Every structure is written in structure tokens, then in C-alpha cells.
Amino acid sequence: MANPYLPQEILIDVFSRLPTKSIGKFRCLSKSWRTLLTTTEFIEFHLTRKTHKENLILVNPSHSLHVITLPIENDSVPRNLELLNTWTEVVGSCNGLVLLLNDEVKVFVVNPITLQQVNIPDSPVALKKNESFSMYGFGYDCSNDDYKIVTLSYYDTDNEYEPDCIDTFVDVFSLKRGVWKRVSCSPYDHAVPDISSGAFVNGAIHWLASSRESGYRSVIAGFDLANEVFYEIPPPNDVDLARFVFYKLVVLGGCLCLVNNTKSEFWMMKEYGLVESWTNFKIDVDCEWDIVKPLCFIGDEEVMLINEGDSLVVYSIKDRTMKDMVFGGIPSMFIDGGTFVESLVSPDFNG
């Protein structure tokens, strides 16, 4: 039982240093502790400690979810996540919440640690799914203390004129308010070869797109979640401005990462917004499969990736070697994945 003479701020300070799973156990030991440990104030303070473990969340070929805690040890084994559905894509994560899509393109926000989940309703103004293309993004708007889902959707005109995409509609869902709204159409052409999820960094969700100006140069378009407007991020100086729209844009090591899959080449923006901060590395070994998606760094010299063979592989930047990621003596097979931090944040603002 909680000590009635121990100041609440002391209790909060002590509990905030504990792992997320331990907090769940302590919530069951005392009514007063449960009340304290479920307050919004405690959950937010616990999140700010920045000591929470990072995890991989992975979708296997059977479309179930698995989680593995980083850093990976020799005896690490992915654990099955008891969130039953036919999962197809990990869109992104923020503060311990993960946005997932299922095979019916239904959107879910889940906390993989507490197993809370919320099924996000379709936008009432959304384009028909069988007649359009859509890309999703997920992030946190710190100015309004709100988590937002952004959908870019468009009809592909499929004609000989440029730009190919006449209008890209931008819909934003507020988890805090529980409503969708449509904002102004995107100023960019989003009819890109790879219908990819947005990359959330520095309060904005980013996609590759083409300018509508003469020449249709490739751009990195950021969507500011606070102001709900688009702006451009400068690309690396050594990329082809007419071609990098064919690349992939992801988050790697907390940074924007531009990936040329066909050449297995990577650029990372180490300091957000500064063109001089783009750094480059390349996979210098022969690969049977193209790289689909980088997931995370293992230490400072290795990066884990998913390849076209649905395998997890690890590339050593220092040694220039590639190896299969093996769990329990068996090479791992996953079709998509991402990272998230452990947290107590609930996806249900209205629960």
C-alpha cells in the first residue's frame, strides 16, 4: 500500500523511473497507486524520462504481429503480439503508439505494450478505396497535445499529360477530438511509383513527391502537423533531382533517410533541415534481393533491413558484410516492420 506520508511528487519521481511493464504490475497492487499511475500527468512525465526501451514491431508472412526488444541479444526471440487481425503494414509510430493497416485498409492505432487499440473510422469525405490511391502518415502535434493521422488520396488520371495527379486531397484525423477534417489540397504531385507511408520527424510527416512547376523536379514534402501546411526539405546535393522521387523515404535512427533501393544507397539527414547534414553510405556487397526497407541500427556500425525476399538481414557498414537475422536458429521472415518505444500512452483519448 502507498505510504500516505510520502509526498505524491516523490512517488511520481520513483515510479517514472520504472519500465512500462513494471508500472502495469504496480497498478494492480493498490487502488491509490492505480489512480496515480493512470493519470495523464504521470503518463506524460513517465514518457519524458527518455529511458524506455526501443522495440521492433514486425508483420510476418501470415500477417500476424511480433515484437522484439532492442538491442538484440543472442537469445532474443520475437514474441507474438496478441492483437488478432490480418495485418499488412506498419505505417509509423510516435511516443509508443503505432499506426497499423489491415488487409481491408482499415486503420488502427495500438499500444503494443498495453495492447490497447482503437479502430479509426473512415473519413466521411474519403475517396472510394477501389477507385483511388492513398498514403498514410502518423505523428504527434505537440502544440495541441494531439496525435494525428494524415491521409493523402488522389484519383490517378493515367494519361499522357503531366502532372499525372490532378489533385491530392489531404485529410487529417485528430485522435484527441475523434474527428476527420479535410484541409487544402497538396501543392505537389503525389502520383509516385511507390505508395509509401509518411516519415514522421520533427513534428512533420514527409513524403516524396514531384513539383508541379516546369521540369517536375523531385521534392521532399513535409506536412507540418501543428499548422497543417506543406513545406519542402532540401534533398542531398548529390542526388538526381529528376529521379529521387523513385526512391523511398523512411525514418532511420530518428532521422529522415532517403533510400535508392536499386543501388542500395542511403542518405541520412543528421540535423533536420540542414542540407549540409546529409550523410551517405552504401551496401557494398552483392545482394540476391533488393532492399525494401531499413528498420534500425544495431549499435553504431550495423543496420537491419527487410529485403524483397521478406527476410530480415543485417549489414555491417564497417566490415561491408551482410548476414541473415536468425532467431532460434531459424532465418527470420517478415514482410514489414518498424520501431516504437515502450510507453503508457493510450490510443483512446475518449476512453
Results as ranks from 00 to 15, higher is better:
D145Q: 15
C296I: 07
R243E: 13
Q116H: 14
D75V: 05
I306D: 02
L274P: 01
I149M: 00
L344P: 03
S343A: 07
N95A: 03
V125H: 13
P78A: 08
G198T: 08
L97D: 12
K128M: 06
E73K: 15
L225H: 08
D240F: 10
K263Q: 08
V229M: 07
T69C: 10
A209E: 04
S76M: 08
G328D: 11
T69N: 10
C257M: 01
K21C: 00
D240G: 05
F334Y: 15
R182V: 07
G253A: 11
I166N: 13
W207H: 11
V91P: 06
L36D: 00
L305M: 15
P19D: 02
K181E: 07
F297W: 12
S62W: 04
S186D: 02
G92H: 08
S62L: 09
M268P: 00
N261A: 11
S174Q: 06
V172Y: 01
E271A: 06
N237V: 13
I120Y: 04
S143G: 12
L101R: 15
L100K: 02
F173R: 02
F244A: 04
P112D: 05
W267A: 04
S264F: 06
L241H: 12
G351R: 12
K181R: 10
V110K: 03
V219M: 05
K129G: 01
L208W: 06
D324P: 04
E288C: 07
D348C: 13
V98I: 09
A242T: 11
T39D: 11
E213F: 09
F230V: 10
S174C: 08
G96R: 04
F223N: 13
L115H: 12
S332L: 03
H66I: 01
N55Q: 05
I23A: 01
V251W: 03
S332F: 02
N80Y: 12
S134H: 15
P234F: 07
I149P: 00
